[in-house]
Structures are given as structure tokens and as C-alpha cells.
Design a protein around this nucleic acid. Structure first.
Length: 216
DNA sequence: ATCCCGAGGG
DNA sequence: CCCTCTGGAT
């Protein structure tokens, strides 16, 4: 069995992207809020939880603290109480209030638009910054390689690498830049709902026909 | 029992 | 590099 050509691989990869985008039309806006501020805060809260859980607390959170100035002056204990169900709530409360304070003090209350400025802010690492840049500003800086993206990329035969940075490079070559951000969301959605670590449900998978690991 | 759209700190 | 922080889903 001959190895798949680069061209064939790229075509298969982008066909997978299109099928997943069709399957999960709301993947890109699951965390999209009214302003970059809301999106950034919601993204910080989303660490180690689901979008659904974050979306349950954001109405109350942004009802009380509609902008960076309000959140910067918030009472920590109150914020903790509101976001409790998202997990890591003490860290996250400290982070989003500190984030708001940094926005006010260093960026005039606005969310900055560069990877460097974002990752300098409390609670924002590379992954969170990537999501903020992609969803709030349409800037595709890179691909977030979390455990889902890693697992699915390998199962789908998009990479043979193990190292997340090498996986990211392979994916960046395979997909046009304007698909980088959405790709992460699609693989994460699919990883949670269908292609999980324990028992992948190939019979319910829309890209099973394009997947070398599929059992069907 | 185990895993998760992570970041910060020792 | 390894640890901690948390709740919820499965």
C-alpha cells in the first residue's frame, strides 16, 4: 500500500475540515460574546471545562461587570461565587479580575491584539491568546494543540508527530491560515462528542470514510 | 476512578 | 519538569 501523497493528504485533510464544519455549524461561535472583553473573559473561564458550563455563568457575570472597568473594581469573593461551577474558581476569579485591571492600567480598558501583549496578561497563556485572537479579531496566529487536537490529528493520519509543537507545524502546512482557528474548535468538538479517548464511536462519525483508524 | 479547550509557580 | 488548583461529566 503506497504512502499517501502530500497532495492527497492535503485534499483529504480539507475535506475532513469541510465535513466537520458542516456537522458543527456553531463551533466557532460557541464562546463568541458581544465584545472582545466578554470573549476574552469567557475564554479564560473555559479552561478545563465546557462551553456550556461557561455560558451558564456569563449572563450573571457580565450583567454585574459589563466592562473591564467594572470587573477591575469587583469584589473577589463575589466573582468567585458567580463562577464557582466552572472549576478552578479561585484561580480564575483572581485571573479575570487581574486581567481586567491590566486592561485598564496598560491598554486603556481594551483587549490588545497581539500574542505578545495578550500572553503578558494574567490568566492568558498561548492557547487562550490563540482563541481570543482568532475569535475576537479574526487573526489566525496558530493552532491550539490540546489533547483532543493531538489525539484526532494522529487518528486521522494528519500527522505522525507526538510533540505538540511539531503537530502544530504539520497542521499549519496542511490547512490554509484562515482555517487554523476553526480547525481547533472542530477537532475539539468532535473529540468530545464522537471521537473520545476511551471509546471512539466510529459508527456515528461523519469523517469515518476519510479516517485510516476507522473501524467501519 | 478518570479526564478535561490551561496557567502559574516551585 | 512537575505540581497545584476545582467541578462536572461519564
Amino acid at each position: 500500500m503506497p504512502r499517501e501523497s502530500k497532495r492527497a493528504l492535503r485534499e483529504r485533510a480539507n475535506r475532513i475540515f469541510e465535513l466537520l464544519a458542516e456537522e458543527y455549524p456553531d463551533a466557532e461561535c460557541a464562546l463568541r460574546h458581544r465584545s472582545p472583553f466578554e470573549l476574552a473573559v469567557a475564554t479564560i473561564l473555559s479552561a478545563q471545562t465546557t462551553d456550556e458550563r461557561v455560558n451558564m455563568v456569563t449572563p450573571e457575570l457580565f450583567g454585574r461587570y459589563p466592562d473591564a472597568h467594572a470587573l477591575a473594581a469587583a469584589d473577589l469573593a463575589e466573582v468567585e461565587e458567580i463562577i464557582r461551577s466552572t472549576g478552578f474558581y479561585r484561580n480564575k476569579a483572581r485571573n479575570i479580575v487581574g486581567f481586567a485591571q491590566a486592561l485598564v492600567e496598560e491598554h486603556g480598558g481594551e483587549v490588545p491584539r497581539s500574542m505578545e501583549a495578550l500572553t503578558a496578561l494574567p490568566g492568558v497563556g498561548r492557547k487562550t491568546a490563540n482563541v481570543i485572537l482568532g475569535n475576537a479579531f479574526g487573526i489566525d496566529e496558530g493552532i491550539v494543540v490540546d489533547t483532543h487536537v493531538k489525539r484526532l490529528s494522529r487518528r486521522l493520519g494528519l500527522t505522525r508527530e507526538e510533540n505538540p509543537e511539531k503537530i502544530e507545524r504539520d497542521l499549519m502546512v496542511l490547512f490554509p491560515r484562515e482555517r487554523w482557528t476553526l480547525l481547533s474548535h472542530l477537532l475539539i468538538f468532535h473529540g468530545r462528542r464522537v471521537c473520545d479517548a476511551r471509546r471512539p464511536r466510529c459508527e456515528a462519525c461523519v469523517v469515518a470514510g476519510l479516517c485510516p483508524s476507522s473501524r467501519v
